[in-house]
Simulated assay, not measured.
Amino acid sequence: MHSIFSDGELLPSEIARRASVLNHKAIAITDHVDASNIDCIKKIRGVIQDIKENWDIEVIQGAEITHAPAEIIGKLAVKARKLDAEIIVVHGETLVEPVIEGTNLSAVHQEI
């Protein structure tokens, strides 16, 4: 899910509370990141740790690398991992979204 740190509408804690009320056992927050905002992972880390310690829901921290040049996807993934992202996905090519050609191929060849 995405929070207000990218194109979502809720704080991470609001997402977790709503998911908990719906009896979800776990969720992942994977906001859009690129070279301009990848440090937002640090901002989210603290609230996720608080939720893990005090609430009855597991929140997994992640990142969705989005609209980054294919050549730097690996570099961004390594940085996201160092910032404690447990799940790293890449916003790939679709029929309706103008993502750089080669994004999907670059994503599947990363070895982190």
Rank of each mutant, 00 (worst) to 15 (best):
I112R: 11
S3Y: 03
E97T: 12
S6K: 06
H91M: 10
S6M: 08
E86P: 03
I41R: 03
Q61A: 07
R18N: 13
A77C: 13
E14C: 07
S36C: 05
V108Y: 12
D39Y: 06
S13M: 11
S106Q: 11
Q110E: 14
N37T: 03
L105S: 14
A35D: 00
I88W: 03
A85K: 10
E97I: 04
A28E: 03
E101Q: 14
A107Q: 08
A19I: 05
I60R: 09
V47F: 01
R17N: 09
Q61N: 07
G92Q: 07
Q61D: 06
R81G: 06
A26Y: 09
K75S: 12
K52W: 04
A35P: 00
K82N: 14
K79E: 15
H91A: 14
K82F: 12
T94I: 03
K79R: 15
D7N: 15
D39M: 08
H67M: 11
M1V: 09
K43V: 04
E9S: 13
I48Q: 02
I57F: 05
E53D: 12
N54S: 13
A70C: 10
E53T: 01
I112E: 12
I44M: 07
T66L: 02
I15K: 02
E93L: 10
D34P: 00
I41D: 01
V78Y: 10
L10G: 00
S20G: 04
V89D: 04
R18L: 15
L105W: 04
K82M: 13
E14T: 03
D84P: 00
I27R: 07
V59A: 06
I57Q: 05
Q49E: 11
I100P: 02
T30V: 11
E111V: 12
H67T: 01
I38E: 00
H67K: 09
